[in-house]
Design a protein around this nucleic acid. Structure first.
Length: 588
RNA sequence: GCGUCCAUAGCUCAGCUGGAUAGAGCAUCUGCCUUCUAAGCAGAGGGUCGCAGGUUCGAGUCCUGCUGGACGUACCA
């Protein structure tokens, strides 16, 4: 919305610059003219928009200051418009008219509702996004929580930008690592099950993965036993397959519960156990067409040294497949199922090499869409205490972490004496915990490693999810009071001209920037653009409503105008919350 | 060794296609609750933007080199 205003002004200034040049019989090259930037002045009292004139100094043979003055003079001479112009040093500054701004911004937001912020930047694109991709040998951990919210948030952002999005999950339910927990259960499990042990089913499976690694440390036979089990599984050995089915079921059921509690969902779930054979077939096709080769031991290789990627194994000598094999199969099958324009893989940065190879292999197999595959690589998440080690079971379990956050939230609500105000203590605490978790995880640019500090994330003061939720809740609380007031014949109407405080103007400009934030987050595949926006908006709003009463005014029109402005803020908060996986709360 | 990513306040992080005095939160110190939820607001201190060059009217931002760190370079995923 601000975008339109900006573009209009840009056009005006360009045409004036051309007129100036014409007077001097100089022509401005197109690229110089096109590079005219629009900026926001550091202080709103200077103006709302700023156009720096530096780049025209050379062509027009005038100082930037002189050009700024000429531009302003000429624009003023041409008249029209309610906005204010000023030349300030090398800048042309524009202050937008308060009344027009208020009416455009607040009314547009309240009329557009949950659709405010949507753009057409990605209209017509079919985007598949793969994320989460758990193994069925252990429960989800902290790293998955970052992955999940990145994937979920990005898919919502891309949808908001007009794309058709399909969220897919690929369950790593086969392979040697899966055999490891199966083997340990077979040997040490004593036919127990999650129910008999009273353990969440995925945690039960995970226990045996850790058990296997303990065993393997002292007994070298463990590795060979796992390989043997993999061969049996791929041969279809009934007993092994039955065990696999049982344990997979446990793992998946547990993981499903975690998704449910964190608000993560998928349009389609793929299983590697179902796609790995396609992978093998595709590799064999490549072998026939000569893009791959087989060595004396029967191992199938691809040589990527021409693109500095070394040689990679695609199929083991014993015929069993690898991660890469099955990813090739999955990619091809998915493109057949739903012919996407681009596919985004949300996977940790430690797998960058893998994806380079994968994309290259697909391209060697003649898949022209391989060029449009994208690995959204994100950094590791650690706790303040240090690094996680999955094999030793030293991981931050996702369920445990969420539970800790919920407990902390419960305590905080009790401490504030808000138990009676929130209808359901546990439910509210769970929503606060999710807001804390998701906001904290998305705040950091994906490419960076980060430290997740649980206490800080849920701390109710500072730059946190709960702080944002609190803003929304307070506006809702105010709305309830406003509805009571208007019921007692205190009737006012929205009048843009009443919102001319500098704080109000800043607030409205910030609101107007939301669609651009959505667009940028989509373009950069970076939800932290939105978390930063959310914090900025909340900060501006909380200062404003701390300093200026909304409901405590004699003029019903002023009350209504400020109330509608607050409702516009709430609408934008709500919309941005949705895009970042932060639950909106009416009361907290 | 090679490859990818990273380096901004004591700590955790922002910094838009290069643009006006480098920002926030936490922590420390100080004000503000008979007043729309103090889960809040305001203020103070705290920085040679890893180092050295270069491009530019202008560099935290772009280029080159160096230093330090993470990850990868498996017939694990």
């Amino acid at each position: 919305m601000l975008h339109t205003i900006r573009e209009n002004w840009k056009r005006h200034i360009r045409s004036v610059l051309l007129q100036l040049a014409e007077k001097k019989s100089i022509s401005i090259p197109d690229d110089v003219l096109d590079s005219l930037p629009v900026e926001t002045p550091p202080d709103p009292s200077i103006g709302d928009l700023a156009f720096p004139m530096f780049s025209f100094a050379r062509v027009l043979k005038t100082s930037p200051q002189g050009i700024a003055q000429d531009v302003v003079n000429l624009l003023e001479a041409q008249g029209g418009g309610k906005d204010l112009l000023a030349a300030s040093g090398p800048y042309v500054n524009i202050t937008l008219n308060a009344e027009t701004l208020a009416e455009r911004v607040v009314q547009t937001i309240l009329q557009t509702g949950s659709a405010f912020g949507a753009t057409t930047a990605r209209e017509g694109e079919k985007i598949m996004i793969e994320f989460s991709c758990p193994n069925t040998n252990k429960p989800l951990h902290l790293g998955h929580l970052r992955n999940d919210i990145l994937g979920e948030s990005l898919s919502r952002i891309l949808k908001a930008n007009g794309a058709e999005v399909r969220k897919v999950n690929l369950i790593n339910d086969r392979g040697i690592h899966i055999c490891k927990s199966m083997l340990a259960y077979q040997r040490f499990g004593d036919a127990t099950d999650p129910e008999s042990e009273g353990i969440k089913s995925d945690h039960f499976v995970g226990k045996y993965y850790v058990r296997y690694n303990e065993w393997a440390k002292s007994d070298p036979a463990a590795e060979e036993a796992a390989r043997e089990m993999l061969r049996q599984w791929e041969r279809g050995d009934k007993e092994v397959v039955a065990l696999w089915e049982k344990m997979n079921c446990w793992a998946l059921e547990g993981i499903r519960k975690t998704y449910e509690s964190t608000g993560i969902s998928f349009d389609r779930i793929y299983f590697e156990s179902e796609t790995y054979k396609t992978g093998k077939d595709e590799i064999l096709k490549g072998l026939q067409s000569g893009v791959f080769y087989r060595d004396q031991e029967g191992t199938v290789w691809v040589d990527l040294e021409d693109v500095d990627l070394d040689k990679k194994v695609l199929l083991r000598g014993d015929g069993t497949s690898l991660y890469l094999t099955q990813d090739v199969g999955t990619a091809i099958q998915r493109h057949t199922d739903w012919p996407f324009d681009t596919c985004i893989y949300v996977v940790g940065s430690e797998q960058q090499y893998h994806f380079k190879v994968l994309f290259r292999v697909l391209s060697l197999l003649g898949k022209e869409w391989a060029e449009n595959l994208h690995h959204l690589s994100y950094g590791m998440v650690n706790l303040p205490e240090g690094k996680m080690k999955s094999r030793e079971g030293k991981v931050v379990d996702a369920d445990d972490l969420v539970k800790d956050l919920v407990d902390m939230a419960v305590k905080e609500i009790q401490q504030k004496g808000r138990e009676d105000d929130v209808q359901d203590l546990e439910e509210t605490a769970a929503q606060v915990a999710l807001g804390a978790l998701h906001y904290y995880l998305l705040q950091v640019s994906p490419s960076k490693d980060m430290i997740f500090n649980p206490a800080e994330s849920i701390s109710f003061n500072g730059n946190t999810g709960p702080y944002l939720q609190y803003m929304g809740a307070r506006i809702s609380s105010m709305e309830r009071k406003y509805n009571l007031m208007t019921a007692e014949s205190f009737q006012g109407s929205f009048q843009g001209s009443l919102l001319k405080l500098e704080e109000e103007r800043t607030l409205m400009k910030t609101l107007a920037e939301f669609p651009e934030a959505v667009e940028k987050a989509g373009r950069e595949l970076n939800p932290s653009v939105l978390t930063a926006y959310l914090y900025r908006l909340s900060k501006v709003y909380s200062k404003y409503y701390h300093d200026y009463p909304v409901l405590r005014n004699d003029d019903p029109h002023l009350v209504a105008s400020r109330m509608f402005l607050a409702l516009a803020v709430r609408q934008v908060l709500r919309n941005a919350f949705y895009l970042t996986g932060i639950p909106f709360l009416e009361t907290m």
